[in-house]
Amino acid sequence: MSDNTKVWEVFIQSKNVLAHKHVGNLHAPDKEMALQNARDLYTRRNEGSCIWVVKAEHIISSESEDGEAFFDPSNDKIYRHPTFYTMPKGSKYI
């Protein structure tokens, strides 16, 4: 009999103002055990105030191979950055 349990990706929020950050994954048969395993595996030193676990199969990723083409649309739009603009001499607080 196969042991194939599901793989879960683990995200930890280290403090309650910060965003959750991916820390790794683990195997668990259901969501409660996934959470408990995540606590034991990734927060043995008080690393977190909140944990998310997500089934790995539910994560959709872009390919790192064709990263360039995928992100190309934003390459030539430097006017999205504030440094693109020329401000009149002497202007302040802008």
Binding site: M1, T5, P29, D30, M33
Partner: peptide
Amino acid sequence: VRKAARSYSKKQ
């Protein structure tokens, strides 16, 4: 243990 956890998860 693994077997029990798997069948519990299927049931859920």
